[in-house]
Design a protein around this nucleic acid. Structure first.
Length: 941
RNA sequence: GGGCGGCUAGCUCAGUUGGUUAGAGCGUCACAUUGACAUUGUGAAGGUCAUAGGUUCGACUCCUAUGCCGCCCACCA
C-alpha cells in the first residue's frame, strides 16, 4: 500500500516547505512502483482509493512534486516550445497577508498559465512582491508606534531596517499562500520591486527620462498629506463628503464665496466667467483686498470654468492651494503665494496668522473678519474634502518643489508624448482591455492626465538617483510664478542625475570631498517601479534572452481598481523604455464581496480568509468558487455554501475516478479516441468532443466561468449520472471510460489542479516527470454525431417520463414495473435501447403496442405513449386531472405554434430552418394531444 | 455635473452575433441508504426576464425614455 504509507507523513509537513529539486520522494516511490508494469493499464486497485477525496492529504505533496519537477520554469518544459505565453503576477504588497481577492487573481492567472502550458506553449508566470512604499511605510510606522516610537526616534537607517525586516516576514507569508493556492508560477524568476535588479532598472529609467527631458524638478501644486509628510499622486487621494460652511467675504469691491477663508490670504487673482455681464468692466483690472494681513494685489481674470450661478459668480484664485486655481494661474502667469506650509501651519506670508495650524488660523480669521465687518454672511454647504487614500488624513493642496514626469512633452526617440503613446497603444488595438467598457474609462483618464508627481518624502522606497553639489547648486528662491518657469530643473548646474553614485561633480570637478555632494532625500512613487514590472522582471535594461522571448507579455490580469494606478503606468513606461506595449491583453476582474454584497473588512468581521476556507474545503473548491458564476469586471459574491458545493464536486470527480478504475481493470489506456459501440457510447463521445471545443473556445476568449459550468454539467450530469449508470448496465467500457476520464482530467486541470493531478498520478502517470500539468490539451477534431445526440435525448426523456410516473404514484424505488409503449416509427430505436431504458427506469417487462385497460398511468414523450399498468395504485380521478392539465398545456403550446405558422410574414421571412423546426414541433404536439385525448377517453373523461 | 454597470426562480448568477415551452447551483418539498460518491441519487414546485414605449414576422437579447441599486470620474470655489 504505497499510497497510504506516503500519504500521512507528507500531509503533516508544513505548507511552506520549499522542496529541493534533488529530493524526489514522491516521484521516486512512484517510479519504482510503476516501472514494472509499463503504461498500459491503470496501476492502482481502486480499493486503495479512500471513498472521499481528502485535499489536506494531497495538496502540499502534489505542489512539492510539481515544484521539484522544475516544470513551472518554461525552460524545463518538454518538447520544442517556440511560442511564449507570459503573465506577470501583479505583485502583492509586502504589507501582510493575502486576502480572498488575491486568491481570485491567483486562480485566474493559474488557469491561463496551465491552459497555455498544456497547449504546448513556453508558459511563464512570473511571481513577485511589491515594496508598496507608502503603504508599507505607514504600516511599520503603526507597528513601532505600539512600542511608543516614531520613525524619527529610530532615524532613517534604523527605520528602514525595521521595514526590511517586516517585508521579509510578509514575503515569506505571501510565498506560502501563493503556493497553497496551487499557483504554477516560476519561482526561479521571482522578483521584488525593491531588489537590486529592479532598483537598477528604476534608476536607469529615471536617468534616461531625465536626460530626455521627461523628468524635471519644479515647484508645482501637489497633494500633500500632512500625516504621511509626503506628496501623493492625483489618483492617490480619495474624497469624503462633509458638512461645511460657505463663507461670503467682502473682497475689495466684491463679495466672494469660499469654503476655506484662510487660503484667501494667498489669493493673487479673482475670476469670473468671461460672459458674466456683472463683472465685464473689471476684466483685466487689479483690485486691492485686505483680510487682515495687509492689502493684497488681486488681478481680475476670466475663466470659462467659473460657474456664474454659484455664490456670487466670483472665485478667489489661490494658486498655491488649489489645483484648479493653479491651472488658472498657469494660464495667466499669476504669482503663487504659499500661505500654508508642509507642516500644516500658516507660513510667514500669512502675516499675523503665521505659525498657526490651518484649523486655528481659519477660526481666528473668521472671527477677525466678522469683527471687522468683512464677513457678508455664512451658509451651510456640503463639500467633498480630499483625503489620503492610505491614512484618511485631509490632504492639503499646496505648491512644493518636487520631481515630476512630463506626460505632454514629446519623447525624442518616439516622436510623441507619453500621453499620446499610451492612448495610441489601446486605441490602435495593440492592447485590448477585457471587458472593453474599461477602454473608454482608460481614454478618459489618460487624456486628462497631468504631469505626474513622482517624488515622495517617505523613507522607504527607491531613493531618487539625484545628487546636489553644494558648491554649484543654488536653490531658487524668491517669488514663485506659475507657468513655464516652474519647470526649472530640466537641467540645472550642480544637479547630478546618475544611475550609480557620482564620484565627482561634473560642473566643478569636486571629487575628494564627497561630503559636499548629497543625495536627494526623497524616494520615488511606488508606481514608478511597478510601472516597469513587465520588463524589469525580465532583466531590462540588459538585453536579456528572457526579455526578447517573453516581452510583450500575453495577458495582464488584475483588478479594475488599479487600472489607473498600475495598468496605465505600465503602458506609459513600457512605451518609453522598450518602445512597445507591455501586454497584449488586459483582463480586469472584480472585487470579492461577502454574500450580501458588502466589501469584506475587518470591522464588519465578514472577511473570508483564503487559508481558512482552503483548509476547510480544499484549494480546488475555493478556486472554482472564485471562478464560476463570475464574469470579468464584475464583483463576486462569495459564501461558504458556494465553496462547499465545489468541495462536493471535487469529491464527485474523485469518485468518478474510483468507479472508472474499478470498471476498467485490465483495459488498455487508449492513445486515441475509441470507437463507440452503443448509442450511449456514441452519445457520450460526441458530447465530449463538443465539450472540448466549447471549453477551448471559451478559454481562448478568456472566459472562465462558462467552461467551468460546461465541464461541471458534463462531468456530473452526463458522465456520472447518465453514462456511468449505463456502463453498469452495458458493461465492457474500460477503454472508453479511461479515455473519457483522462480527457476530462486534462480539461479540468487548469481549474482544479490538485485533485486532477492526484487522480492522474494514480490512474495514468508512468512516473518519470509524467504530470497532468504538462499533458497535452485535448483536441476537438471529430464532428458531432447528430443522430446519436438526438436519439439519446429520446432515451433520456423516456426514462425521465417513467421515473416521473413512478414518483407520482409512489412506486417503491426498488420495485420493477411493466410498461407498454406505443412507439410508432421509433420502435426499432426503443427496442435496441431496451436494456438501457429498462435498467435506468427499473422496468421488468417492456411491451409494444397500445395499452389496454384503464388502470394505466400515461405520459407522452417524443410521440411515444408510455403506459404503466399500475392496477389499484392508479387513482382514476387524479390521473384524469393530471392528464387534463398536461393536455391543456400542450394545447396552449400548440395554439402558439399554430399562430406562428399561420403568420405569412413569419413563414416568408424567417429562415427556412427555423420554420421547419416549428413545423416539426407542431406535428409532435398534435400527436401528443391526440394520444392524451384518447387516453382520457379510455379513462372515461 | 459627466460616465459606467446591474435589475432574469426565495438566494447567487448563466443566457455572445434576435428564433428554447427562459436555464444552472443553493434553498424548498417528496422519495430513496449493502459498495464509485449521502460531500449521494430520483422526481417536483418555483420566473408576465425592473417599468413604459419603439424597431422586427419574431425581443430576455436591439433602440428610446423612466425607476430603483452600485461604482467611477469631475474644478462647483
Amino acid at each position: 500500500m504505497p499510497l497510504k504509507k506516503s500519504k500521512k507523513p507528507v500531509a503533516k509537513k508544513p505548507a511552506d516547505r520549499r522542496p529541493k529539486p534533488a529530493k524526489k520522494s514522491v516521484g521516486a516511490k512512484k517510479t519504482s512502483r510503476r516501472s514494472a508494469s509499463a503504461a498500459a493499464a491503470p496501476l492502482l486497485a481502486p480499493a486503495e482509493l479512500p471513498p472521499a477525496y481528502d485535499p489536506q492529504a494531497v495538496e502540499d505533496r502534489i505542489y512539492a512534486s510539481w515544484e521539484a519537477s522544475g516544470l513551472f520554469n518554461p525552460d524545463n518544459l518538454p518538447g520544442e516550445r517556440k511560442e511564449p505565453f507570459t503573465v506577470m503576477m501583479p505583485p502583492p504588497n509586502a504589507t501582510g497577508t493575502l486576502h480572498i481577492g488575491h486568491a481570485m487573481f491567483l486562480t485566474i492567472e493559474d488557469i491561463l498559465t496551465r491552459y497555455h502550458r498544456q497547449r504546448g506553449k513556453a508558459a511563464l508566470w512570473l511571481p513577485g512582491t511589491d515594496h508598496a512604499a507608502i503603504a508599507t511605510n505607514t504600516k511599520v510606522e503603526k507597528i513601532i508606534a505600539q512600542e511608543g516610537l516614531t520613525k524619527y526616534d529610530l532615524g532613517r537607517e534604523k527605520f528602514i531596517g525595521r521595514v526590511k525586516e517586516f517585508v521579509a516576514g510578509s514575503q515569506g507569508t505571501i510565498r506560502k499562500q501563493v503556493r497553497k493556492m496551487g499557483a504554477s508560477c516560476d519561482w526561479s524568476r521571482e522578483a521584488y520591486t525593491l531588489d537590486e535588479p529592479r532598483s537598477r532598472a528604476v534608476r536607469e529609467m529615471f536617468v534616461r527620462m531625465y536626460q530626455d527631458g521627461l523628468i524635471y524638478r519644479g515647484s508645482r501644486i501637489v497633494n500633500w498629506c500632512p500625516r504621511c509628510e509626503s506628496t501623493l499622486a492625483d489618483d492617490e487621494v480619495e474624497y469624503r463628503a462633509e458638512k461645511g460652511k460657505l463663507y461670503f467675504l467682502k473682497y475689495g469691491p466684491f463679495v466672494v464665496a469660499t469654503t476655506r477663508p484662510e487660503t484667501k490670504l494667498g489669493d493673487t487673482a479673482v475670476a469670473a466667467h468671461p460672459d458674466d455681464v456683472r463683472y465685464k468692466k473689471w476684466h483685466g483690472q487689479t483690485i486691492t483686498a485686505d483680510f487682515g494681513s495687509g492689502p493684497l494685489q488681486i488681478k481680475f481674470i476670466t475663466d470659462s470654468g467659473v460657474d456664474p450661478k454659484f455664490g456670487t459668480g466670483l472665485v478667489g484664485v489661490t494658486p498655491a492651494h488649489s489645483a484648479v486655481d493653479y491651472a488658472m494661474a498657469e494660464k495667466n502667469l499669476l504669482p503663487v503665494k504659499k500661505v500654508i506650509g508642509e507642516d500644516g501651519k500658516m507660513t510667514k506670508l500669512a502675516g499675523k496668522y503665521a505659525g498657526l495650524p490651518v484649523a486655528e488660523a481659519r477660526q481666528k480669521l473668521v472671527a477677525d473678519l466678522e469683527k471687522a465687518g468683512l464677513m457678508d454672511h455664512v451658509e451651510d454647504h456640503d463639500l467633498n474634502i480630499t483625503i489620503c487614500y492610505r491614512c484618511g488624513t485631509t490632504v492639503e493642496p499646496l505648491t512644493s518643489k518636487q520631481w515630476f514626469m512630463d506626460v505632454n512633452r514629446v519623447v525624442p526617440a518616439r516622436g510623441q508624448s507619453l500621453k499620446r503613446l499610451a492612448v495610441d497603444a489601446v486605441r490602435s488595438g495593440r492592447v485590448e482591455i477585457v471587458p472593453d467598457r474599461f477602454e473608454k474609462v482608460y481614454y478618459h483618464w489618460m487624456e486628462n492626465l497631468r504631469d505626474w508627481c513622482i517624488s515622495r518624502q517617505i523613507w522607504f522606497g527607491h531613493r531618487i538617483p539625484v545628487w546636489y553639489c553644494s558648491s554649484c547648486y543654488v536653490e531658487d528662491g524668491g517669488e514663485e510664478r506659475a507657468g513655464a518657469a516652474a519647470k526649472e530643473s530640466r537641467r540645472h548646474e550642480g544637479v547630478i542625475v546618475s544611475v550609480e553614485p557620482p564620484t565627482k561633480c561634473p560642473t566643478c570637478g569636486r571629487a575628494e570631498d564627497l561630503a559636499g555632494i548629497t543625495q536627494d532625500p526623497d524616494t520615488l512613487d511606488t508606481w514608478f517601479s511597478s510601472g516597469s514590472w513587465t520588463f524589469s522582471t525580465l532583466g531590462w535594461p540588459e538585453k536579456t534572452a528572457d526579455l526578447k522571448k517573453f516581452h510583450p507579455t500575453s495577458v495582464l490580469e488584475t483588478g479594475y481598481d488599479i487600472l489607473f494606478f498600475w495598468v496605465a503606468r505600465m503602458i506609459l513606461m513600457s512605451a518609453y523604455a522598450v518602445g512597445d506595449i507591455p501586454f497584449e491583453k488586459v483582463y480586469l476582474h472584480g472585487l470579492v464581496r461577502d454574500e450580501q454584497g458588502r466589501k469584506m473588512s475587518k470591522s464588519l468581521g465578514n472577511i473570508i480568509d483564503p487559508l481558512d476556507v482552503v483548509a476547510k474545503f480544499g484549494t480546488d473548491a475555493v478556486r472554482l468558487s472564485l471562478i464560476i458564476g463570475n464574469s470579468p469586471g464584475n464583483d463576486l459574491k462569495l459564501s461558504e455554501e458556494k465553496i462547499a458545493h465545489f468541495r462536493n464536486f471535487a469529491n464527485k470527480l474523485w469518485n468518478i475516478a474510483r468507479f472508472v478504475l474499478r470498471s476498467s481493470a485490465g483495459a488498455r489506456r487508449p492513445t486515441s479516441q475509441p470507437k463507440g459501440k452503443t448509442l450511449a457510447d456514441r452519445w457520450l463521445l460526441s458530447r465530449l468532443n463538443a465539450v472540448v471545443k466549447s471549453v477551448t473556445d471559451d478559454l481562448e476568449a478568456m472566459n472562465f466561468s462558462r467552461p467551468g459550468e460546461t465541464l461541471q454539467e458534463f462531468t456530473w450530469t452526463e458522465l456520472a449520472d447518465w453514462y456511468l449508470e449505463i456502463a453498469k448496465i452495458e458493461g465492457q467500457k474500460g477503454e472508453i471510460l479511461l479515455y473519457v476520464l483522462e480527457t476530462v482530467l486534462k480539461l479540468w486541470h487548469p481549474f482544479m489542479p490538485f485533485v486532477t493531478e492526484e487522480i492522474y498520478r494514480l490512474a495514468f502517470s508512468t512516473g518519470h516527470n509524467d504530470y497532468l500539468m504538462v499533458a497535452p490539451w485535448p483536441k476537438s477534431g471529430a464532428k458531432p454525431d447528430a443522430a446519436a445526440l438526438k436519439e439519446f435525448v429520446l432515451v433520456q426523456e423516456l426514462v425521465v417520463a417513467v421515473r416521473n410516473l413512478r414518483a407520482t404514484y409512489k412506486v417503491e424505488p426498488g420495485k420493477r414495473i411493466d410498461v407498454t409503449l406505443a412507439c410508432g416509427a421509433k420502435k426499432a430505436l426503443v427496442m435496441a435501447q431496451s436494456a438501457v431504458i429498462s435498467g435506468l427506469a427499473k422496468l421488468d417487462k417492456m411491451e409494444f403496442g397500445a395499452a389496454t385497460g384503464s388502470a394505466n398511468a400515461t405520459a407522452v414523450v417524443h410521440g411515444i405513449q408510455i403506459s404503466v399498468p399500475l392496477g389499484s395504485l392508479v387513482d382514476l380521478g387524479a390521473e384524469k386531472k393530471r392528464l387534463a392539465e398536461e393536455l391543456a398545456q400542450a394545447e396552449k403550446y400548440l395554439a402558439s405554434l399554430e399562430g406562428k405558422l399561420k403568420n405569412q410574414d413569419f413563414v416568408a421571412r424567417a429562415p427556412a430552418q427555423v420554420v421547419a423546426a416549428e413545423r416539426e414541433k407542431l406535428a409532435l404536439q398534435r400527436d401528443k394531444i391526440a394520444k392524451l385525448k384518447s387516453q382520457l377517453k379510455e379513462l372515461g373523461g
